[in-house]
């Protein structure tokens, strides 16, 4: 896929170490998509690994070659060319759930109220979850450099002994 001519593509980037498990992301997601505060209908989920004291938000990473999209027998999943998001068309989706089997990460799920599948669509390029996160555990950043902040953190710890000796 040639992405060279597009505007800078952005990705949701999740840093579980900053997550407190407050679920503001789930509320923001459900409000935007369902018109109500309803974590049960959120496309992003926060997992509480209680025994380890860890909270981990998880959602679709928008695979470049998306298993869900390839598996869909009715071509109901397409690429939003502006954002790179894989988007489900409710008009086309027949609720067969083949995509939910194909997705290796479990981030596309069936909604029995509508008979369609739900997945993150990046809110058309301005994800509500990232805006709602009070600790910046979820950010929406340059897709090519999601590792930049972590690189910077490690870079700052890199020993400069050799230079001092030179």
């Amino acid at each position: 896929m040639n992405t060279g001519k597009r505007l800078m593509q952005k990705s949701l980037h999740i840093d579980p170490g900053k997550c407190t498990g407050c679920l503001q992301c789930e509320m923001a997601c459900s409000l935007d998509n369902e018109g109500a505060f309803n974590p049960a209908k959120s496309r992003i989920k926060v997992f509480d690994f209680h025994a380890e004291g860890r909270f981990v938000p998880y959602t679709c990473t928008q695979c470049a070659e998306a298993w869900c999209m390839k598996a869909c027998p009715v071509d109901a999943i397409s690429v939003d060319t502006l954002t790179g998001a894989k988007v489900v068309s409710d008009a086309l989706c027949v609720g067969c759930k083949v995509c939910t089997i194909a997705c290796p990460f479990g981030t596309i799920n069936y909604n029995q109220t509508t008979g369609k599948v739900l997945k993150c669509d990046l809110c058309g390029g301005d994800p509500e979850c990232a805006k709602a996160c009070p600790t910046s555990a979820i950010t929406f950043i340059d897709a090519d450099w999601t590792g930049l902040e972590r690189m910077r953190d490690w870079a700052s710890k890199t020993d400069s002994g050799t230079r001092a000796e030179a």
């Binding site: 407190t20 498990g21 407050c22 679920l23 503001q24 509320m27 380890e52 004291g53 860890r54 909270f55 009070p134």
Partner: peptide
């Protein structure tokens, strides 16, 4: 180990 939030708590 860490701090943690109740529902919706910032």
């Amino acid at each position: 180990i860490t701090n943690g939030a109740c529902f919706g708590c910032t």
